[in-house]
Design a protein around this nucleic acid. Structure first.
Lengths: 202, 202
DNA sequence: ATCATAAAATACATTGATGTATAAAATACA
DNA sequence: TGTATTTTATACATCAATGTATTTTATGAT
């Protein structure tokens, strides 16, 4: 029934107040949605709680979004970006993979809420065909982008498989490892991440 | 609001009718729960639909289970077993990994419902501390069992990391790959699974 | 300052779900 | 076959959530 203490306005001082209030409350709402999704999961996130978290009521939500789905989708669309690990040009594959491993492990810790939200949204997608298709299409673009980005840092000749496959495998492995670390951090310390990714270098 | 057509009694002819009806309806209910969870996800699975699917009403459920949670948990407890790929004694690591890859890909296709159910349950666990702890503890046992089983088929000296880590990595990778294949089968054909697992052999 | 417009709060209607209490039906047993 | 008991169905109370309609409040322009 809504925390009373932590009802802080999220988008308090982000820059100058500027003209478009609209955008600011939209952003605050989306941010709050992200928090709630991260805690409760995509399905059980309630608008009541989202609104309270942003210091407003549901009225504000329906003034800015058509439906619950639209708000939650807006969050996913806004905050869901692939990691960009700090790769080093010219370094050997194994080292690049170590960097990716560390970035993944770190992301699992620092952005748990977002990641849990993303994960739970994926489950949602799995049971909503239209959303699933949209998401699958989006992923294809992301893969392409990552392929391009990676091509600048690693030599395809060093890879144990075609670059396209490699990207997809990295994605699956990252997701799987993060997921398991959420469930039980003790069983998936950094060392496991590093071993896993390094093993992909022939 | 319940399909009227496909309301088939699931536990129709499984053996001789035998004395304990109790057990049979329990099983039928659990089975139906599995179906619904697989389609709707753990959170949105409704008792109404589960009961209808088993050709009964909610009355039967509450006569056999304390609550919704208990029924769903019963499903997870009953049907959630790790894969047992048909490994070959004495074969080189790479070949064993190929076998695991194929088994995983096949499982993704054949047991989609169960897997989606399991996945969505994991999300549920992530947002329910007690369940999460229980599940984490269970996983530790499973890891131990798999370690033992694997030790009979593969030579630790061939591994790129300690056996314990390797098992955990296999788990994370399988989960991640299956998840992605659910989302977009085209992007994760068998070949990707095979490349991914094979790459783990030094 | 006043008025028109937009944004947010409140009040309301509806829905879908769980869980309980009670009645009906099926089963086992004497 | 008749009765006690268990199992399932029905009816009911409750709750939490979404979405809509309406009112109040804030904002901006003239």
């Amino acid at each position: 029934m809504a925390r009373t203490a932590s009802q802080t306005k999220l988008a308090s001082a982000k820059g100058r107040p500027k003209g478009d209030k609209r955008e600011r409350t939209r952003a605050a709402l989306i941010e709050a949605a992200g928090q709630v999704i991260g805690e409760k999961g995509f399905e059980r996130a309630s608008l009541e709680e989202v609104a309270a978290r942003a210091g407003m009521t549901r009225g504000a939500i329906y003034g800015n979004f058509k439906s619950k789905e639209e708000l939650l989708l807006a969050f996913v669309g806004t905050h869901w970006r692939p990691l960009a690990p700090p790769l080093k040009k010219g370094a050997p594959l194994k080292e690049q993979l170590r960097i990716i491993a560390r970035a993944t492990a770190q992301a699992a810790d620092e952005r748990r809420a977002i990641a849990v939200g993303a994960l739970s949204f994926q489950i949602y997608a799995l049971t909503h065909e239209a959303v699933q298709r949209e998401m699958a299409a989006g992923n294809v673009h992301i893969y392409r982008a990552i392929e391009k980005a990676l091509a600048e840092f690693i030599d395809p000749a060093e890879l144990p498989m075609p670059l396209g496959r490699f990207v997809r495998v990295l994605h699956a492995l990252s997701d799987g490892l993060m997921f398991q670390r959420f469930l039980d951090p003790d069983q998936f310390p950094d060392a496991v991440f590093i071993s896993a990714f390094e093993a992909l270098a022939p």
